[in-house]
């Protein structure tokens, strides 16, 4: 997977989250299914961010 694919992956997860926000506005009372999706999206983004750092050669502190 290249850098641009990782970036696409994060954008894609965020767009999915936006749909949840739109569906639940303005109170954002999430269902179990929504919470599961949010959790999975966050996990996926964390993995993609890690990969971006590695592939871009960002030096970890």
């Amino acid at each position: 997977m290249g850098l641009s694919e990782s970036v696409d992956g994060i954008i894609s997860e965020m767009l999915a989250l936006r749909q949840i926000l739109r569906r639940t506005a303005p109170l954002h009372r999430f269902s179990e299914a929504d919470l599961k999706m949010i959790e999975e999206a966050a996990e996926s983004c964390e993995a993609l961010l890690k990969r971006i750092r590695e592939e871009a050669g960002v030096h970890q502190p």
């Binding site: 767009l15 936006r18 926000l21 739109r22």
Partner: peptide, 21 residues
């Protein structure tokens, strides 16, 4: 994402997730 929008001409044009992509 934060409001309920009742605008009469806007509801049917709200984008799908695929359209946002």
């Amino acid at each position: 994402e934060d409001h309920v929008n009742l605008q009469p001409i806007q509801r049917g044009g709200v984008l799908s997730e695929e359209a946002m992509r």
